[in-house]
């Protein structure tokens, strides 16, 4: 008998949104979110990723973690495309407050206003906040 996860039947696809609001490294939230995103993508779900507030620092270019003895997991965001996670959104206001622009980010994202993000959030089946 095959295990359930080996069955090649298509289950329901839900719209999942992950909201990343915290700076990387200071807490474990950013890394944990990334893990759950990858798991969700492995189950062929419809994944959207939002970076807002200090979460925008998760995808800041040029992270060098040698000095703090922690793994730099930022290259993983560039690999998300390979898992069909292509809906990456950034809150414009959060970037502006921090003096950052699209140029400072290591992945291609769609920059949205809070009103646009609210609409997007409204369309989801599941919203998870990290």
């Amino acid at each position: 008998m095959s295990e359930p996860w080996e069955d090649d039947v298509e289950g329901p696809v839900k719209k999942f949104m992950f909201i990343n609001r915290k700076s990387p490294y200071g807490t474990v939230y950013a890394l944990e979110s990334l893990e759950v995103v990858l798991i969700t993508a492995a189950f062929d779900q419809d994944v959207s990723l939002v970076f807002s507030d200090d979460g925008v620092f998760q995808i800041k270019k040029g992270q060098k973690t040698d000095g703090i003895g922690m793994k730099n997991f930022s290259p993983t965001y560039r690999a998300l495309e390979g898992y069909d996670v292509e809906k990456l959104y950034v809150d414009k206001e959060s970037l502006d407050e921090r003096g950052l622009t699209q140029e400072d980010l290591l992945v291609d994202v769609e920059i949205l206003s809070r009103a646009e993000l609210a609409d997007l959030m409204d369309e989801q089946d599941v919203v998870l906040s990290f």
């Binding site: 700076s23 990387p24 490294y25 992270q63 060098k64 040698d66 000095g67 922690m70 930022s74």
Partner: peptide
């Protein structure tokens, strides 16, 4: 400095 650099600054 090390905390600054880790966060891409």
């Amino acid at each position: 400095g090390p905390d600054l650099n880790a966060r891409g600054m």
